[in-house]
Amino acid sequence: MAQARRIGMYLLLIFVVYTIIHSPARAAELVQSGFVGISDAAKSVGAFMTGLVK
């Protein structure tokens, strides 16, 4: 099981490096959209907590 996980991690790393080299603009877009999603989620949790306090 541990070896399968290691192989999966290597494959994921190879895919990420390939994507960055092959299309850096698209890779940057994906990272940016990921951070926007995390930011939106944090804002939503903050709004929820604020609503609980009021």
Results as ranks from 00 to 15, higher is better:
residue 19 T to V: 03
residue 15 F to D: 10
residue 24 P to Q: 03
residue 24 P to R: 04
residue 8 G to F: 02
residue 20 I to L: 05
residue 12 L to K: 01
residue 33 S to V: 13
residue 33 S to E: 06
residue 9 M to R: 06
residue 5 R to P: 05
residue 37 G to A: 06
residue 6 R to H: 00
residue 44 S to A: 14
residue 7 I to Y: 01
residue 38 I to H: 01
residue 34 G to K: 01
residue 12 L to Y: 07
residue 41 A to C: 08
residue 50 T to N: 08
residue 7 I to D: 07
residue 36 V to S: 05
residue 11 L to H: 09
residue 20 I to Y: 03
residue 35 F to V: 05
residue 34 G to I: 11
residue 47 A to R: 11
residue 16 V to I: 04
residue 39 S to W: 00
residue 11 L to V: 02
residue 51 G to F: 04
residue 17 V to D: 04
residue 48 F to A: 05
residue 22 H to T: 05
residue 18 Y to A: 15
residue 9 M to W: 06
residue 24 P to W: 13
residue 24 P to G: 09
residue 30 L to S: 10
residue 5 R to N: 05
residue 1 M to H: 14
residue 19 T to M: 13
residue 19 T to R: 06
residue 3 Q to E: 03
residue 48 F to S: 00
residue 19 T to L: 12
residue 3 Q to D: 09
residue 5 R to H: 04
residue 21 I to K: 09
residue 25 A to Q: 00
residue 47 A to W: 01
residue 47 A to Q: 13
residue 12 L to F: 03
residue 38 I to T: 08
residue 1 M to A: 12
residue 54 K to C: 14
residue 36 V to W: 04
residue 49 M to G: 04
residue 26 R to V: 13
residue 4 A to H: 15
residue 28 A to C: 11
residue 30 L to M: 10
residue 8 G to C: 13
residue 30 L to N: 07
residue 39 S to H: 00
residue 9 M to H: 07
residue 48 F to M: 01
residue 40 D to K: 14
residue 16 V to Y: 00
residue 15 F to E: 10
residue 7 I to V: 03
residue 8 G to I: 05
residue 37 G to E: 05
residue 12 L to N: 09
residue 28 A to R: 11
residue 13 L to M: 11
residue 41 A to D: 03
residue 31 V to C: 02
residue 7 I to Q: 10
residue 26 R to A: 13
residue 24 P to H: 02
residue 15 F to V: 07
residue 37 G to Q: 07
residue 23 S to F: 07
residue 13 L to T: 08
residue 43 K to Y: 06
residue 23 S to E: 12
residue 22 H to A: 15
